[in-house]
Nucleic acid binder design. Structure first.
Lengths: 213, 213
DNA sequence: TAGATTGTTAATCGATTAACAATC
DNA sequence: TAGATTGTTAATCGATTAACAATC
């Protein structure tokens, strides 16, 4: 159970988990690094190192690791066993989709409330979660231990919304807008940039199609 | 205008573009690498190399590059000037949000139609785009030049949906499910894994909060 | 001219991959 | 025992960062 884990490793752990859960109920007890590497198209040594980073026990030569234990280790490493409360800021199409999305619960995220500036939007409930006016955000968040905001406002409002989030004590912003929001060092921003992902996607696709000609 | 561009660079180009568009109408003519680096919190040399990779002209010492020209260069490099048609596969909460999302148009993506297996869902229009039964996908896609599918089905249906997409000739799958979908080499998959992003996010946040104690 | 920025070439850093002895 | 898998140590690779001469 090493201490320093790279971003790339962090990206892979949920992938391992998805795979392990898919083979969990198949009467198998052990899983090995080569098996995982093969299934996910990864390098064996890489998988071994990753597993070492999250696993409490050593693997058994010739067998590997117990699937159920590995699942628990990854879940606990990723904090899925103690979900974090989060708020949705901006209940447009995407914000609404997230409030409805059941999957977040299994990623350790508990969306408790949404905020929006539009009177047509706030006042209602979505999936049992209330939507309040953005102007009430300080009032609602105080006396809670909410530290995480999911930012799904329009691009042009991203920075001002982020500024307010910082003022009210939010410590982490999961940014789904294309904005390069500027924050102090006391706040963590994780960008989920659709355009960046799409740029990689089309470049790869172009290269593939070019090769065929 | 170099030939080989890394994934990391591809991720950064849309960020540059967002920044450049935000300063475009401010009576400024030139922008320099140090200015961009400062604004986006990046290394100067890195920015310089990135700009060299997409720019047709050389930058001018002491001035930098013309903002409008750089914007055009990036847009053209990313293919924003010739959008690709794409289909939405799985019109749940997320698929619906994407069909409504106006921003895709400016990323070079043109969503033309959605597919779903649920009779409650297909038959209707969203944002002027029709939704057809998934069973009709071959019929609808043939005789078009659609190569890209945006996969927003539930996790457990991801692989079978992908298999059908491959059969009907889709060449690129932008995968928003957590599934590790398996495809032949003739198909490109770009994963947009929420759980991977959230894992990086919470790890960074934990480290920050730990440091404060 | 002086100085900021450029492009290029070299050094550093970190992650991935390879090699190999140890173990059940 | 033989062989597959393990963990560890070393080599490779690629991207980032630093250094520096060239230019307007």
């Amino acid at each position: 159970m090493s201490e320093n884990v790279s971003n790339r490793q962090l990206e892979r752990f949920p992938m391992y988990l998805t795979y392990l859960l898919s083979i969990e109920d198949k009467d198998l007890v052990y899983v090995s690094a080569p098996q995982i590497a093969q299934a996910l198209g990864l390098n064996v040594e890489q998988v071994r190192k990753d597993l070492q980073a999250v696993s409490n026990k050593e693997g058994q030569p010739k067998q590997g690791r117990k699937i159920t234990e590995l699942i628990e280790d990854i879940k606990s490493f990723l904090g899925y066993d103690k979900p974090s409360d989060a708020i949705i800021v901006g209940v447009g199409h995407l914000g609404k989709a997230f409030m409805n999305f059941k999957g977040f619960a299994s990623y350790g995220i508990d969306i408790v409330v949404g905020f929006d500036t539009d009177p047509e939007v706030y006042g209602r409930d979505i999936n049992g979660k209330p939507i309040y006016p953005f102007s009430a955000i300080r009032e609602v968040v105080k006396n809670t231990d909410i530290k995480i905001a999911i930012l799904t406002v329009p691009l042009e409002n991203a920075q001002e919304a982020a500024d307010e989030l910082i003022r009210i004590g939010i410590r982490g912003i999961w940014n789904f807008t294309a904005a390069n929001i500027v924050t102090p060092d006391s706040v963590v921003v994780e960008n989920m940039n659709l355009a960046s992902s799409f740029a990689k996607f089309t470049y790869k696709l172009e290269e593939l199609l070019k090769k065929e000609k």
